[in-house]
């Protein structure tokens, strides 16, 4: 699998993502700087976690307008799978690839802990190695993870089965306990929790590995 990890100023989960991708697929991803205007030909793009541009203006707002994102948006529209984790999810909503917005956590505090997610849709290229209803343990680490969208958007997400993961015990006030959502075509997933941090027992968990195995199988 040929993959790319986009690196923004103050991304800080880009190396974790690269390690996870290489561990599962056997191939190191291209690390692509945000200022690039060309994306190498890849089967999969990952937008990592972090605090791109210091969360200035709004989390993900600046990164979503960076030069490389024009190419990411083009690739997403052409069907290339794109996964945004944490800040990457914020960048996806700010870029318009996913609906809604990630607001300040309802409790106002930074939440950093392992949470349980329920797999709501396992018929996606990101989740096919899970079973529907599986509860998986995945860490969250964010200040702005409180998913908000208008009522029509929420209804579409529910009706079209585009909520991939829900929190079992909502840590941030997200509407409908949303932890991760898909675009209408199913090739873009944004999620606040960090599957790349739980891919080996030495990291404290393995529940994230199935996501990378799913992607690997889907693009093979």
């Amino acid at each position: 699998m040929k993959s790319a990890v986009i690196v923004f100023p103050a991304s800080n989960c880009d190396r974790d993502a690269a390690v996870a991708l290489e561990a599962v697929s056997g191939a190191a991803p291209h690390m692509v700087w945000h200022g690039e205007t060309d994306l190498p030909p890849v089967d999969f793009i990952l937008l990592p976690g972090g605090f791109s541009y210091g969360d200035y203006l709004r989390s993900g707002a600046m990164a979503a307008r960076s030069p490389i994102m024009r190419e990411v948006i083009k690739a997403a529209h052409n069907g290339t799978p794109v996964l945004g984790i944490c800040n990457g999810f914020q960048v996806l909503t700010e870029s318009g690839l996913l609906p809604g917005v990630l607001m300040r956590n309802a409790g106002l505090t930074f939440v950093c802990k392992t949470v349980h997610l329920r797999v709501e849709n396992n018929e996606t290229l990101f989740t096919r190695h899970y079973n529907k209803g599986d509860q998986i343990a995945v860490p969250v680490a964010h200040h702005d993870g409180n998913y908000f969208a208008d009522a029509d958007t929420l209804k579409d997400l529910e009706d079209q089965n585009r909520i991939a993961f829900r929190y079992v015990d909502n840590p941030n006030g997200s509407q409908n306990d949303i932890a991760g959502i898909l675009n209408a075509n199913g090739n873009v997933l944004g999620m606040m929790p960090h599957p790349e941090r739980v891919i080996a027992p030495i990291l404290g968990g393995t529940d994230g590995a199935a996501m990378f195995e799913s992607i690997l199988e889907a693009v093979a």
């Binding site: 203006l57 707002a61 609906p99 969208a149």
Partner: peptide
């Protein structure tokens, strides 16, 4: 395009 997020 940038300064406001008109969703919210």
């Amino acid at each position: 395009k940038l300064l406001a997020n008109t969703v919210i």
